[in-house]
Design a protein around this nucleic acid. Structure first.
Length: 507
RNA sequence: CGGGGCAUAGCGCAGUCUGGCUAGCGCGUCUGCUUUGGGAGCAGAAGGUCCUCAGUUCGAAUCUGAGUGCCCCGACCA
């Protein structure tokens, strides 16, 4: 007797234990695993495939907006790092520092660090300082500007509470660093890249975002202004999915990026920086996935279609495989998004049900079963990942091939719409502190249930507000750019306010 | 950095209190056979410095001491 099949592929469900569900989705989809180094993860091929797709699409967007790629060192001399006071304050506590350059026997069979460095090296938590130092050498005249460079790199921030993809000690990202002759141009760049991110999140990740400006307390250390995109996860918490910083002249003064303008006067350049990281994969998981595992938007899925040959014995096998391989080859020529349909034929010798569930847990958008019966009727049996695992239907083979790209677009759209509906359902105007507190207080404080959401409330920049927010474990996510001007009173201090701010618990 | 807990097979655990046969169990892994349109069954196999070091003892996974690592709660997290 087969044992009772679990109702969902992932246990626990989102409702039962959201953080644990997240970890099980990552495991079930074979995206990544924890490594022997605390806080550092091994990204496995399926997870890496998603990141590669993100990189490809973003990289093209950066090139289309006039940027080029380059690479700067992993190590930053401590003295560079010290130059921008705010920057130091923000990052000092999470820096890994290299102090030695050699190992030697410790006399007990092991090794110990030897050869102390004259100046310690900080493993980059971000590269403003080292890139600023380099730009200072490159820039002499207004004719050398703008500099529009991006780099793909790893960075290290020694986090106390790591979580796979969402907060890891080492993570991968891209960081754009630009220098401009005028403030206006730098501001325009900051906004332009925010739009690139928002467009990517919505059209490629199928994740609706709120574009906004950070409050002073949440700003990047050393920035004049930080813009961000914020997304709603299924547990109603917020996740910052991308940031774009207007750095003013803070870093150019710290690194001495000066140029001679057209009037022959020395000026400091205006700089920006902007980045997104492997954290986006965490966002992808928490926005779309369900209790059966990962759900991938087709535009980022490493494979769009998995073909599952079904046969009983060797005599059936060759016929089915021939049919399936033929179908795979035809599909591989079908254009989709910015390339072709990616197809996997899974003929591994493992039990059928187990195999199908593996692909469900990995979030492959389309599963196609082909057995002797289907071949007889020249049709295929199709399951969509955005629908239930049992909702499958027979489709004539040629129709499937002709409509596969459109079907993937449908899935992409349905995922976006579902996420947009979720976001709408958790946006909530709040007009009093009492209401605010109630909104963000779980019924069960020991094991908080899914609660809260995105509270839109009037706000004033005041230390008392920070105090209250900390108590509730809520943060000001952003001042939405699109939010209407609306006179009101700060719900914390009673001070006048002309716009609502988004508040939420956050990752 | 403060408070608490844990350390035995890849993972989850029992055994420790009360020292004593060859250190077990579940899951997973591997192999074979039977199965396969929905998460299989049977048979077999591999896999352990019982965290480390020192001590007590005829004998230590078990008792004692020191060390190390990890987890949870706080602090911290642009």
């Amino acid at each position: 007797m087969a044992k009772q099949a679990a109702k969902t592929a992932i246990t626990p469900t989102r409702e039962e234990d959201y953080p644990e569900w997240y970890q099980q989705v990552v495991k079930g989809a074979d995206l990544a695993e924890n490594s022997p180094v605390r806080g550092c993860m091994v990204i496995k091929p399926w997870g890496w495939g998603i990141w590669e797709n993100m990189q490809r699409v973003l990289d093209r967007a950066f090139k289309e907006t006039g940027h080029v790629n380059a690479y700067f060192p992993l190590f930053i001399p401590l003295s560079f790092f010290e130059r921008e006071a705010q920057h130091v304050e923000g990052f000092a506590k999470e820096c890994a520092v290299v102090t030695h350059h050699r190992l030697e026997p410790d006399g007990e069979g092991g090794l110990k660090p030897a050869g102390p460095l004259e100046e310690p090296l900080v493993v980059r938590p971000t590269s403003e300082t080292i890139i600023g130092e380099t730009y200072a050498k490159w820039v002499q005249s207004y004719r050398d500007l703008p500099i529009l460079i991006n780099q793909w790199a790893n960075v290290v921030r020694w986090e106390m509470r790591p979580r796979v993809f969402l907060r890891t000690a080492e993570f991968l990202w891209q960081e754009g660093h630009t220098a401009h002759a005028t403030k206006e141009e730098a501001l325009e760049e900051t906004m332009k890249m925010l739009d690139v991110y928002a467009d990517f999140a919505e059209n490629v990740m199928a994740v609706p975002v709120i574009k906004g400006e950070k409050t002073p307390a949440e700003r990047f250390p050393g920035a004049v202004n930080t813009l961000c995109i914020e997304a709603v996860m299924q547990d109603r918490k917020a996740l910052q999915a991308g940031t774009s910083h207007f750095l003013g002249q803070n870093f150019s003064k710290a690194s001495n990026i000066q140029f001679l303008n057209a009037e022959g006067k020395q000026e400091f350049a205006w700089t920006t920086s902007w980045g997104v990281s492997t954290r986006l994969i965490g966002a992808l998981i928490m926005v779309h996935s369900d209790d059966d595992g990962l759900v991938l938007p087709p535009r980022l899925a490493p494979k769009h279609v998995v073909l599952l040959p079904i046969y009983r014995d060797a005599s059936e096998r060759s016929g089915v495989l021939e049919y399936v391989n033929d179908l795979a080859n035809e599909l591989r020529h079908v254009p989709y998004f910015d390339g072709k349909i990616q197809v996997e034929v899974d003929d591994r010798d493992i039990r059928g049900g187990d195999k199908v569930w593996q692909h469900i847990k990995k979030g492959v958008p389309l599963r196609v079963e082909v057995g002797p019966r289907d071949i007889q009727s020249n049709s295929v049996f199709v399951g969509r990942r955005d629908q239930g695992p049992k909702e499958k239907k027979a489709v004539p083979r040629d129709e499937f091939v002709a409509t596969v790209a459109k079907t993937l677009d449908d899935i992409q759209t349905s995922l976006f719409n579902k996420a947009a509906a979720l976001r709408e359902s958790v946006m909530h105007p709040v007009d009093s502190l009492v209401e605010f507190e109630a909104y963000f207080t779980p019924k069960n404080p020991d094991k908080p249930e899914i609660h809260g959401g995105f509270a839109l409330a009037h706000w004033a920049d005041d230390p008392a507000v920070e105090e209250k927010l900390k108590e509730l474990k809520v943060t000001a996510r952003c001042i939405p750019l699109a939010g209407p001007e609306e006179p009101g009173k700060c719900i914390f201090t009673g001070k006048p306010s002309n716009k609502r701010v988004v508040f939420a618990k956050a990752y």
